[in-house]
Amino acid sequence: MAQLEHLTTPVDTVARRMRALGAVLPERDGVGVFNRVYLAVTEEVGRHLRTGEFTDPRAAATLDVRFAERYLAAVDAAAAGHRPPACWRPLFQLRHHPGVRPLQFALAGINAHIGHDLALAVVDTCRALDCRPVDLEDDFDRVGDLLASLEERVREELMPGPDLLQIADPLTHLLGSWSLERARDATWTAARALWALRDCGEVAEEFADRLDAAVGFAGRMLLTPLAD
């Protein structure tokens, strides 16, 4: 729809940045694995915006871009030799580990981005649009549904085949302990709490820091090396 073009342009801009990253990151690089997954999500959001499938296209586009910018900021921080947020550190630290499987890299990135970045992106969007989290709930759920369908596809595509059962057995056990659905529900609660605390200064900052650290801890567990 032509009237939605001004909304999809910023989404296309972050997608181009992800494509550029994908062109230079090695295929086995853990950040590159996640980047391919996230690019697919961003492109799908763009398609849904063009076909008018979001309740509030402006809010959905703003949320998607603010969300993506947090991942890209972590990439920039790591590239500049700075420490990215705690939620992203395990992925950047273990991105070349030979004992970590591609599926682990993908889900660790999803964990960092959903568990931490999405909650802060909801608050960013509410500030930008002068609205409340409840006003974004329908489109938050639509984006979450896209992520859930993609997670299922990623698990199918990246899970080792039957000839690698010695890897698949511990991998299935490890990754079965993490659920995108549970992470999504926790993120929505965290976003509402952060919004309620938005004028509480140090309390809000401490809450965000604790969320960052907790998500980073989960990411480190997801990246447990399973083979040398």
Rank of each mutant, 00 (worst) to 15 (best):
R47L: 15
G30C: 13
L174V: 10
L118T: 05
F207E: 00
L171Q: 03
D64E: 10
M18N: 12
D117S: 14
H116V: 00
L194F: 05
L39G: 13
A60P: 10
A168D: 09
L211C: 04
E152P: 00
E53D: 05
C131R: 08
P90L: 08
L120S: 08
V65K: 00
R19D: 14
H48A: 06
E202G: 01
D124P: 06
T189V: 10
R58S: 05
L223H: 10
M159R: 14
L146P: 03
T55S: 13
L226M: 12
L72E: 07
R184K: 10
G161S: 12
E44F: 03
V45A: 05
D12S: 15
A218G: 11
A119P: 02
T9Y: 15
L91S: 03
E69D: 15
R220N: 11
L226E: 10
P225H: 13
R66L: 11
P10G: 09
A204I: 00
T51F: 00
L175F: 06
D212M: 01
L171H: 05
I167A: 12
L174C: 13
P102N: 03
A196F: 00
D212Y: 01
T224Y: 10
T42A: 10
V65I: 07
S149M: 04
T55Y: 08
D139N: 09
P170S: 09
G161A: 12
T51L: 05
R153G: 02
L223T: 07
A193T: 15
F207L: 01
L94Y: 08
R58G: 11
L120H: 09
R210A: 11
R127P: 06
D124Y: 09
R50E: 06
M18R: 14
F34K: 02
P160I: 06
L174D: 07
V24N: 02
A2N: 08
L49A: 01
D209Y: 01
L25Y: 13
D135E: 14
A119Q: 09
D141T: 15
A77Q: 08
D135G: 02
S149R: 08
R89K: 12
A193R: 13
L226H: 10
R89L: 11
W188F: 06
L194T: 01
G81T: 03
E69P: 01
L226N: 05
E69C: 07
R198Q: 10
R66I: 01
L39D: 08
D145L: 09
L158I: 06
Y71P: 06
